[in-house]
């Protein structure tokens, strides 16, 4: 029980730091934060475009993996520096909603691709013979 009350205490104090100073719920924005996000985004965008347009790596699979990696990092950069997401905003509910969405997204996306590609692979090409004998 005392642990619970401690948690509440922390929560209230944690929010006091930047919650009530200006409007509640408004993120604390800084020039440095936006510029860091912007410069990182430019770098993280330019490298994949360069890799693909200049065909730097002969092996396509390696390029695909690197490009996807850069995209994931850039999404995280945007989340932190532009969307101002952290674990304390809205008492953690923002983060919880995001994690839930990410989970659904992965299940739906990976699941769709997995199932559909397997169905593709298991489809036999139909011959004229088979078509004649079709029910």
């Amino acid at each position: 029980m005392s642990a619970v009350s401690h948690n509440h205490d922390d929560l209230v104090h944690g929010h006091d730091d930047h919650g009530h100073g200006h409007d509640e719920g408004m993120p604390h924005v800084t020039f440095k934060g936006y510029m860091t996000g912007f410069i990182l985004s430019v770098i993280l965008t330019a490298i994949p475009f360069w890799l693909v347009m200049a065909k730097v790596i002969p092996d396509n699979k390696v390029t695909v993996a690197i490009v996807l990696g850069f995209a994931v990092i850039q999404v995280l950069v945007h989340m932190v520096y532009f969307l101002h997401l952290d674990t304390t905003s809205e008492g953690g509910w923002n983060m919880l909603a995001l994690i839930f969405t990410a989970m659904l997204l992965v299940i739906m996306f990976a699941g769709s691709l997995w199932v559909m590609y397997h169905m593709n692979a298991n489809m036999m090409p139909v011959s004229v013979e088979d078509m004649r004998n079709m029910p």
Partner: peptide
């Protein structure tokens, strides 16, 4: 804990719009 509990609750109802908008974005 009565006071602390009260404070926490009050903070939570302060601002629903940003959280609601975030849920829309999700």
């Amino acid at each position: 804990s009565a006071q602390e509990f009260y404070l926490t609750e009050e903070h939570h109802v302060e601002n629903g719009t940003m959280l609601g908008f975030w849920l829309y974005l999700m």
